[in-house]
Amino acid sequence: MTIELKIPEYSANWAEGEQQGKWGMAIDMDICTGCQACVAACAMENNIPFVGEADSGYGRSMHWIRTERFWEGEFPEIKMTPYQPVLCQQCGHAPCEPVCPAFATVHSQAEALNLQVYNRCVGTRYCANNCPYQVRSFNWRDYERPEPLPNQLNPDVTVRRRGVMEKCTFCIQRIHRAQDQAKAEGREVADGEFTTACAQACPADAIVFGRIDDPESAVSKLAGGARGFHMLEELGTLPAVTYLKGG
C-alpha cells in the first residue's frame, strides 16, 4: 500500500471585497455586562479544565474566552473601558496556521474556521506565540478532575491531555450536530437554529452567532453596522468576530 502524502491548505483564499467566512460572531460591547456567564458556559461545553490558584495566577488559565477591561482616567473621573470578551477570532488569514510544523492548526475550507487538531499537536506552541490575540491556551499539565466531576464531560468534545494546544472552536461540535440534523432533513442550516455555548448563555444577548455569509442573518446585520470593528484590524487577519463599539 502506498500512502500518498499531502500538504493541506491552511489559509483562506478570499479576494478583497469577497464575502468572508461562513460562521461569524458579533459582540456588542455596549451591552456586555462582563458577567462571565460565557466563560463558565464555554468551560462546561468544551471540557476545559480548571488549573487551580497558582497556575491561573501565573498566566496558565485555560479560558477559551476571557473578558478584558482597562481603566481610563483617574478617580473620581475614572471609567472602565467596555468589557471586551476575547476569544479566537477565527481569522481568515490566521497567523497561527502557517507556523505549525505539524499541521495541527489548519484552516477548514468547509467551515471557514481555524481548526485545532489535538491529535496532531506536538506542542511547539509556535501558534500561541504568533497569535496576536493571545487566545490560545496550552495544556501545561494533565489537569486533575477528581471523581465524579468527569461525569459532566461533554462526549462531543475531546478531552485534551498535557502538551497540547487548544482554543475556541466556535463550538464546532454544535455546528456539526446542526449540519447533520439539517442534512438528514434535506435542507440548509438556518440562521439561529443553533448557537455557541457563550452566545446561548449570554444573559444580555451581547454575543450573536450565525451565518456571516447570509446578509440577512442577525449577525451579518450587526456586524455590518456602523458600530462594528475588528480587533487589531491593521494586521489584516480578517477576523470572523466583529465587535460593536459603545453606542
Binding site: I3, V99, P101, A102, F103, V122
Partner: peptide
Amino acid sequence: WLMPIPNQRGLWPNFHSPL
C-alpha cells in the same frame, strides 16, 4: 512527526512553518 517520513497519517510536515 516533524520529520518528512512516510506515515500512516498521510501528512507531510508543514513546510510553511519556520520550525
